[in-house]
Amino acid sequence: MPVSRNINELPKIATREGYGHTLVELGKEDENVVVLDADLAAATKTNMFMKAFPDRHINCGIAEANMAGIAAGLAASGKVPFMSTFAMFVAGRAYEQIRSSIGYPGLNVKIGATHAGISVGEDGATHQCNEDIALMRTIPGMMIINPSDDIEARAAVRAAYEYKGPVYMRFGRLAVPVFNDREDYKFELGKGIVLREGKDITIFATGLCVVESLYAADMLAADGIDAEVINIHTIKPIDEELVASSAARTKRVFTVEEHSVIGGLGAAVCETLSEKCPTKVTRIGMNDVFGESGPAAELLHKYGLDAEGIYHKIKDTLK
């Protein structure tokens, strides 16, 4: 399979940029699209929408719980609200508002959560949300998308808009390689994408860990380990069929995510496989620890979530 392009040669763009750009496109197409923010418009990139449609950008101030409620009220009145702040302050602080005022009534609110995971970097543990996927997965009817690059982020935002119901979108602060630039790239909600076919192991990855897993697979190939790499951009509902069928072929599964190993992609894959195709799974992610301050790349390396870390973890596990 393709891969093997030098990671350093790919253009790098943060997924939050694609979110901001696509909001502007949607704003042009549908006057019912409104955007809410909680005093982080420059960071979440909703400032692009604010500039284009000042009357439809609602800054709620630093009050995330209220923002979630306002979004619910707007959705109940026919608007298509996209609400944004950092993952920690929306999935964490406003969890119950999302659950009871958005999830329970099944309102058409789109949550654009930026600055997820340890790649937030220097701000440290208070701002590095490694728990959001776990929290959002427990809300009935909540769709969860974690795009892996700019191209996928743009497609995800549009798909979230076209879907009727609550959606949680997870974006990063860090500029990451744009690798989904194939002619035949297609984003389908709930469908994983096989990026590299392999017969020895399957790596299910999500978010910025997808491209890192592709490079890890190259390194493994040099050692004679043929890894299948699958991009799981939609974590809920997860592509059960693809997860089970790939596991049935390779019989050894790894999951990789910039999130706690509890409750995220790894958990979703384990839950699927334990019912559909019992398979040994090793979860690679944040091992039930908080993050810390530091440059994003250094943190990803320290916590074993870059290509090298993923490679070593898989090699060590297979010994």
Binding site: G69, E96, S101
Partner: peptide
């Protein structure tokens, strides 16, 4: 609006009032 968890309903009403204004 679905309500029950105290404190949440007023925010949703504010969202509805804002939608009317918009």
């Amino acid at each position: 609006m679905s309500t029950g968890s105290l404190g949440q309903g007023l925010s949703t009403a504010v969202g509805m009032a804002l939608a009317a204004k918009m």
